[in-house]
Simulated assay, not measured.
Amino acid sequence: MLKSPKIAKQHLIIFTRYPEPGLTKTRLIPVLGAGGAANVQRQMTEYTLSKVQELQKAIAISVEVRFSGGDLELMQNWLGTDLIYQYQGEGDLGQRMTRSLLDAFDAGARQVVIIGTDCPGVNAQILAQAFTKLQQWDIALGPAIDGGYYLIGLQRPFLELFVDIDWGTSQVLQQTVAICHQLNLSVAYLPSLADVDRPEDLSIWEQIFVG
């Protein structure tokens, strides 16, 4: 693994997958084909990263890419060598996010925000807002219209938030908020945005990428 740059107090983690045809954005394959679906994954990751780089010009954050598929060399050739790269590793999404959070806080981060690359509405302003809210609230959540969330930010590793969640369902946000209430954690909400996961979501992406 490449020697990692120093992690800042405010740390952003991007979860993504190497855009290998047939293994990514599989729900889009029926309408786009394996290559087309992989191309959307590539474009959306690059678009998300461009918004993150806008944020880096405004505030001092470190950026980490947690990836699955491919390998370190492929990821660096694709997105550049000036990012922190780590494999997502095994387990469900909750276990993989838990691993990334523990690593970040152990390395000295004080606020950690995790995003995916499926939500083209994420921009530098929303990301900055998440870090700002974490100065006062325990948790920042970006609700997705499908019932999940596109962003979660924490000021400590509240690992209970990632256990017994029905990942990939419309219950994810509701279940997460319920755990927050059980733990008496304060929650700050960001704007609700739409994910691009299914063929009927493609118009959302096309409005931004084409229009």
Rank of each mutant, 00 (worst) to 15 (best):
114 I>E: 02
197 D>I: 12
65 V>Y: 00
190 L>T: 01
53 Q>P: 04
183 L>S: 12
29 I>Q: 04
121 G>H: 05
103 D>S: 15
77 N>I: 05
58 A>K: 15
112 V>D: 01
15 F>I: 07
31 V>W: 00
68 S>E: 15
114 I>V: 13
4 S>L: 15
53 Q>V: 12
36 G>K: 03
52 V>Q: 08
165 I>S: 04
10 Q>L: 09
57 K>E: 14
81 T>F: 13
160 E>P: 06
93 L>G: 03
44 M>G: 02
37 A>G: 03
140 A>G: 13
83 L>Q: 07
209 F>W: 12
211 G>K: 15
149 Y>D: 00
50 S>I: 02
122 V>T: 09
129 Q>R: 14
8 A>T: 10
187 V>C: 11
110 R>I: 05
20 E>P: 00
180 C>I: 04
71 D>R: 12
124 A>W: 07
69 G>P: 09
123 N>G: 06
27 R>W: 00
155 Q>Y: 02
60 A>V: 10
176 T>G: 04
92 D>W: 01
140 A>R: 01
21 P>V: 08
92 D>R: 12
76 Q>A: 14
69 G>Y: 08
16 T>I: 02
47 Y>C: 07
188 A>S: 15
187 V>F: 08
177 V>I: 15
113 V>R: 00
146 D>H: 02
85 Y>H: 09
195 D>F: 08
138 D>W: 01
76 Q>P: 05
167 W>D: 05
71 D>I: 12
140 A>T: 12
8 A>H: 13
171 Q>T: 10
24 T>N: 10
116 G>K: 01
145 I>E: 10
177 V>M: 09
138 D>E: 11
21 P>G: 05
37 A>S: 08
156 R>F: 07
17 R>I: 09
93 L>W: 00
151 L>Q: 06
124 A>H: 08
142 G>F: 02
169 T>G: 10
136 Q>Y: 11
170 S>L: 02
94 G>K: 04
164 D>G: 06
88 Q>D: 09
20 E>M: 10
142 G>A: 09
171 Q>G: 06
192 S>Q: 14
211 G>D: 13
186 S>N: 13
200 E>S: 13
178 A>T: 10
42 R>P: 00
82 D>W: 07
186 S>C: 12
181 H>Y: 08
114 I>L: 15
52 V>H: 03
143 P>I: 08
89 G>L: 10
1 M>F: 10
71 D>E: 10
12 L>Q: 04
71 D>H: 12
160 E>T: 07
104 A>F: 03
195 D>T: 10
178 A>L: 11
147 G>V: 04
68 S>Y: 00
